[in-house]
Amino acid sequence: MPERRRRFSPQFKAEAVQMVLETGRPIAEVARDLGIHDGTLGNWANAWRREHSEPDQPLTPVERVRVKEMEDEIRRLRMENATPRSPAPQPPLPPRPSQSPSR
């Protein structure tokens, strides 16, 4: 006889995910305590993280200065690469040995 699929309320899911996030306990341990499969709780936790991703942290003043320095360097290097250069002078070829008629 096939097993019936269990359904969980949104409140139960939210509380289960909250237990994982706030306690720092492993998903498998929390799932075991709640009597659900760890893959199920892992899916709920991943879905929550995708929906509630934190915005990027703003740069510190030191990081802003470093980014500006790097952007300036990139701009300078691109200009150097775009500037045509004359080829480096080639050293003269050694003299060819003279061939005498040997016939």
Rank of each mutant, 00 (worst) to 15 (best):
M1F: 01
M1I: 07
M1C: 02
M1P: 00
P2M: 03
E3G: 14
E3Y: 04
R4G: 05
R4K: 13
R4D: 07
R6C: 03
R7H: 14
R7K: 04
F8C: 08
S9H: 12
S9V: 04
P10A: 02
P10L: 13
Q11W: 08
Q11M: 14
Q11G: 10
K13I: 15
K13D: 06
E15V: 06
A16K: 10
A16D: 03
V17L: 09
Q18N: 07
M19Y: 03
M19F: 01
V20Q: 09
V20E: 03
L21H: 00
T23K: 12
G24D: 11
G24L: 05
P26M: 00
I27R: 05
A28V: 11
A28P: 04
A28D: 14
E29C: 08
E29M: 08
V30H: 11
A31I: 05
R32D: 12
D33K: 13
D33E: 15
L34P: 10
L34W: 02
G35Q: 04
G35T: 12
G35A: 11
H37G: 01
H37L: 06
D38S: 05
D38N: 10
G39V: 03
G39D: 13
G39M: 04
G39C: 00
G39W: 10
T40Q: 07
G42Q: 02
G42N: 05
N46Q: 13
N46L: 13
A47R: 13
W48I: 10
W48L: 09
W48M: 06
W48K: 08
R50F: 04
R50E: 06
S53W: 07
S53N: 06
E54Q: 14
P55G: 06
P55F: 08
D56I: 00
D56H: 11
Q57K: 14
P58Q: 09
L59V: 01
P61F: 07
V62R: 14
E63W: 00
R64Y: 09
R64W: 00
R64S: 13
V65F: 08
R66Y: 05
V67G: 05
V67N: 01
K68T: 11
M70D: 12
M70Q: 10
E71Q: 04
E71I: 00
D72F: 12
D72G: 02
D72M: 08
E73A: 15
E73H: 08
I74A: 06
I74V: 15
R75T: 09
R75M: 12
L77T: 04
L77G: 00
R78L: 14
R78A: 10
R78M: 11
M79C: 05
M79R: 08
M79N: 00
M79S: 06
N81A: 14
N81F: 02
N81D: 06
A82L: 10
A82W: 05
T83I: 02
R85L: 13
R85F: 07
S86I: 07
P87M: 03
P87D: 10
P87I: 12
A88T: 14
P89K: 15
Q90N: 07
Q90K: 14
Q90S: 11
P91M: 01
P91C: 05
P92S: 09
P92M: 04
L93N: 02
L93G: 00
L93P: 00
P94V: 04
P94L: 06
P94G: 02
P95A: 01
R96L: 12
R96H: 07
P97I: 10
S100Q: 08
P101G: 03
S102F: 05
R103W: 13
